[in-house]
């Protein structure tokens, strides 16, 4: 079943040059898709448009067959049920690890257990009381993943999530996260410039060049 559907999507920042041009894409439930391309090709812009952090100039985005944005209408990011993890992790520096994970599930009665469960899945449960600056980069990335997954988003978007980590940490996290994503049946869209990483993590690769989807290389 298609969970994310993008039709005729265009995006421009200056009304002249397209950052994204005629993007058509559909992603199935539980699928892991990587978007590959050189820097500045528009892959991060695509992710931000899907998340609702940018509004496209033209085109339609549907999630579960419901329109979430087109030229006239747009559901804000906080109401889209989409998770996001970025390269610099963006953990809230004033909250400890457990409260970072609880941030998005504040209204859930089981929030503590749920958060602990996710910390456990990502093997960082013993860091629950630590603050982001007290833990390593790899640990921060695990917390960021736990935080994004805790609210059970429809789709999880990852923007170069592992690029700031060293090689051994990367491969360790690659194995673990892929396993977790598959176990949970999550739909994941990963933006990456690392072809090997993308190949390992995902079921399908999409190439973007100059804002357009290009045939597979």
């Amino acid at each position: 079943m298609t969970i994310l559907e993008i039709k005729n999507l265009h995006h421009t920042y200056d009304n002249e040059n397209y950052a994204l041009e005629d993007i058509n894409l559909s992603i199935n439930d539980g699928e892991i898709v990587s978007i590959l391309g050189p820097s500045g090709c528009g892959k991060t812009t695509l992710l931000r448009v899907i998340a609702g952090l940018e509004r496209q100039s033209k085109g339609t985005i549907k999630i579960n067959e419901q329109i979430i944005s087109n030229e006239k209408f747009m559901i804000p990011p906080e109401k889209r049920s989409i998770g996001l993890v970025v390269q610099d992790k963006a953990l809230f520096p004033h909250l400890n690890v457990i409260n970072n994970v609880i941030f998005g599930i504040q209204k859930n009665k089981e929030k503590y257990n749920l958060a602990k469960n996710y910390l456990d899945i990502f093997k960082v449960e013993e860091l629950a009381d630590k603050y982001p600056h007290e833990i390593s980069g790899g640990e921060q990335q695990r917390v960021a993943l736990a935080r994004a997954m805790a609210p059970h988003p429809n789709i999880l978007l990852l923007d170069e999530p592992f690029s700031a980590l060293d090689q051994s940490l990367k491969s360790e996290l690659h194995h673990e996260t892929k396993k977790i994503f598959k176990e949970k049946g999550l739909t994941v869209v990963i933006v990456s410039h690392d072809k090997d990483e993308a190949k390992f993590l995902s079921d399908r690769l999409i190439y973007i060049e100059d804002g357009k989807i290009s045939p597979q290389k």
């Binding site: 804000p76 906080e78 889209r80 970025v86 963006a90 935080r147 994004a148 988003p153």
Partner: peptide, 15 residues
């Protein structure tokens, strides 16, 4: 304050 924090918060239903 990095704007990435705002983006993350918004996808976590905070605005």
């Amino acid at each position: 304050i990095s704007t990435n924090l705002d983006d993350s918060a918004r996808t976590l239903k905070s605005s």
